[in-house]
């Protein structure tokens, strides 16, 4: 009985990519839909350009604020390497959406490690994933900060929450002066998988 009707969304990327805002929007949409919601993330040291993750869970009743490995219905990654890093969270039958953005970690910049070929690694494992050209779209809209909203638009097609809840959630959570560009970004993301 427990867990059957739960939806788990694992959002990842690097510090500064708007992951916490994205998880706020997913949570607000679920709350508007009348569901129980929990989300969890870590602040502080981890946000100084490090790997950032947010767990969002919604359904009739949520206990754990953390998603278990292998049980995330959607892994939404704002950066390619992070998608590969957090792959073990993906559930059987789940789906991964990854942006077209590459951000080198310090270990790669100083030559201690190589940035992997993420798509090849995912293909080799038969991971069901889509690359969302979020950077291209955001740049086309004249604001590279809306990458996360493009990704959310794409995610909204997959997650079991109606479009009316998403619109309201985006409106609630983005700064008013950036609302127009964010709504455009959301719609563009949505049309990609729609």
């Amino acid at each position: 009985m427990d867990g059957m009707e739960l939806t788990n969304v694992f959002i990842c990327g690097t510090g500064g990519q708007g992951i916490l805002l994205a998880s706020e929007v997913v949570s607000a949409a679920a709350q508007s839909a009348g569901l129980d919601v929990k989300k969890s993330e870590v602040h502080g040291m981890a946000q100084r350009g490090g790997s950032v993750t947010s767990h969002v869970r919604f359904g009739s009743k949520v206990y754990s604020p953390l998603i278990e490995l292998g049980r995330s219905d959607l892994v939404l990654s704002m950066e390619k390497l992070e998608a590969l890093r957090w792959l073990p969270y993906l559930a059987p039958g789940g789906r991964m959406l990854m942006s077209d953005i590459r951000i080198n970690p310090l270990t790669v910049n100083v030559g201690d490690a190589e940035y992997p070929d993420v798509e090849a690694a995912l293909n080799a494992r038969d991971v069901p994933y889509d690359v969302i050209p979020a950077y291209e779209i955001a740049r086309g809209l004249g604001n590279v900060r809306v990458v996360n909203t493009v990704m959310l638009g794409a995610a909204s097609v997959i997650l079991p929450l109606g479009p009316e809840y998403w619109k309201e959630a985006v409106e609630q959570r983005v700064p008013p002066k950036a609302l127009k560009v964010n709504m455009e970004a959301f719609e563009k993301g949505r049309s990609l998988l729609g």
Binding site: G50, L81, E82, L106, A113
Partner: peptide, 10 residues
Amino acid sequence: KVKTPLRPPA
């Protein structure tokens, strides 16, 4: 788990 380069804070 796939072996990936660490992304320490900076």
